[in-house]
Amino acid sequence: MSGSGSFRSILCAVDFSEHSIDALRFAIGLAGRDQAQLTVLTVNEPPLVEAAAAKCGATYLERETERELTNLVLGLMPGTADWAPVPHSAVRAGKPHTRILECATEEQADLIVMGTHGLGGYRPTFLGSVTERVLRHSTIPVLAVPLAAPDLVIFTDHSPIFHVGHVLAPVDFGPGTAQHVRVAEDFAHSFGASLLLVHALNELRGPAVLRFALQGLERERAEEARERLFELASTRCTADAESCVVSGKPADEIAGIAARHGVGLIVMGLSGEGASESRPGSVAYRVLTMTQVPVLALPPAQNEETAHAV
């Protein structure tokens, strides 16, 4: 990923579900915007490969998958648009998350785009297991696109148009904060969207006798956070950015703000509140399971590398 928020090589993993088709539309739009290489990958799992080989021959499944993948890509591509990328299709066999990460390395991808899904209506309870494993192990940014996001990108003859509105950057003031804000601002600029910086304070809880003391401490923490957000926006953002401080469970608050403010993209790190927190349990992971907004998740390795450079 370049310093301007653009990408050179994008890998989009699909499984022919509606979620992955929406992700592919977003990937086509990004590749067209950046004139990036686009690789579209699907992976056949071992039980399916073995069953197809026993019934139809060793090469049948791969041939049919290649045909179906080609038809899927061609069906989504804006055929007359001069900006449209020329995608490369790839079919692999094995464990999906392993093959996705291997292909990303082979193609020198600087972004992986995937669909994500869950159960439970507006607040699904878990990510797709493949997406979760890729998020756990990826060393490059992963864009997770939910099923509710098909209208965020529209293809015209002249360019892809992203209807993003607002880009939200949750801020925890950790070592990767400057990078998150920089990437979020770059996306906001390229999408013609506004940037919203949010810091979520965990609520302080204690005995009722300490209620007034806790309320005073909450006000002090909120004021300090507002000052730090203002300083961050003043020193790290080249354009005006909105900012707000909220109190509650961080993931709940971030997902709620995204829904209320018409946010079209969330940019945040996968390291959560601190480097010691496991990635699947981080605030970013919980946001991914709750929101209907695409989330660009930046891996800790990139956070730390960038933090040393700023």
Score class of each variant (00 low, 15 high):
residue 158 H to K: 03
residue 306 T to G: 12
residue 266 I to R: 01
residue 266 I to L: 02
residue 158 H to Y: 00
residue 57 G to C: 08
residue 125 T to N: 06
residue 87 P to G: 02
residue 51 A to R: 02
residue 110 D to H: 01
residue 288 L to M: 13
residue 76 L to P: 10
residue 203 E to C: 06
residue 26 F to C: 10
residue 98 T to W: 03
residue 197 L to R: 07
residue 154 I to Q: 12
residue 74 L to T: 09
residue 95 K to Y: 04
residue 55 K to W: 07
residue 115 G to R: 02
residue 131 T to E: 11
residue 41 L to G: 03
residue 230 F to R: 12
residue 39 T to V: 06
residue 81 A to W: 03
residue 169 A to M: 04
residue 300 P to K: 07
residue 230 F to Y: 07
residue 85 P to R: 06
residue 101 L to Y: 05
residue 258 A to Y: 03
residue 298 L to Y: 04
residue 55 K to T: 13
residue 209 V to A: 12
residue 243 S to F: 14
residue 54 A to G: 10
residue 193 A to F: 07
residue 7 F to P: 00
residue 229 L to H: 11
residue 308 H to G: 04
residue 265 L to G: 00
residue 11 L to R: 01
residue 302 Q to M: 13
residue 99 R to H: 08
residue 230 F to T: 07
residue 245 V to E: 13
residue 38 L to M: 09
residue 106 E to W: 07
residue 290 M to A: 15
residue 42 T to W: 11
residue 262 G to M: 04
residue 245 V to R: 13
residue 243 S to Y: 15
residue 152 L to F: 08
residue 89 S to A: 09
residue 164 V to W: 01
residue 304 E to N: 12
residue 156 T to Y: 06
residue 56 C to Q: 14
residue 172 D to K: 12
residue 288 L to H: 08
residue 249 K to Q: 14
residue 287 V to M: 05
residue 59 T to E: 14
residue 289 T to N: 10
residue 279 R to Y: 13
residue 199 H to K: 02
residue 299 P to I: 00
residue 65 T to Y: 01
residue 186 D to W: 00
residue 115 G to K: 06
residue 183 V to L: 02
residue 249 K to E: 15
residue 58 A to W: 10
residue 100 I to T: 08
residue 13 A to N: 04
residue 115 G to D: 05
residue 231 E to I: 05
residue 64 E to H: 14
residue 189 H to T: 07
residue 217 L to T: 06
residue 81 A to M: 08
residue 183 V to E: 00
residue 191 F to H: 08
residue 303 N to D: 13
residue 268 M to I: 01
residue 68 E to G: 08
residue 121 G to R: 10
residue 168 L to Q: 03
residue 233 A to L: 13
residue 154 I to G: 10
residue 302 Q to P: 05
residue 120 G to S: 11
residue 161 I to T: 14
residue 119 L to V: 14
residue 250 P to W: 09
residue 13 A to K: 05
residue 45 E to P: 11
residue 107 E to G: 00
residue 214 L to I: 15
residue 27 A to Q: 06
residue 183 V to D: 00
residue 246 V to T: 15
residue 17 S to V: 09
residue 247 S to P: 11
residue 69 L to F: 04
residue 69 L to M: 04
residue 109 A to E: 01
residue 180 H to E: 02
residue 142 V to H: 02
residue 222 A to H: 10
residue 36 A to I: 02
residue 16 F to W: 13
residue 256 G to S: 12
residue 272 G to M: 02
residue 6 S to W: 00
residue 151 D to S: 15
residue 65 T to D: 09
residue 228 R to E: 13
residue 162 F to L: 06
residue 265 L to C: 03
residue 49 V to N: 01
residue 296 L to I: 00
residue 87 P to I: 07
residue 273 E to A: 09
residue 211 R to I: 11
residue 305 E to W: 03
residue 143 L to E: 02
residue 295 V to K: 00
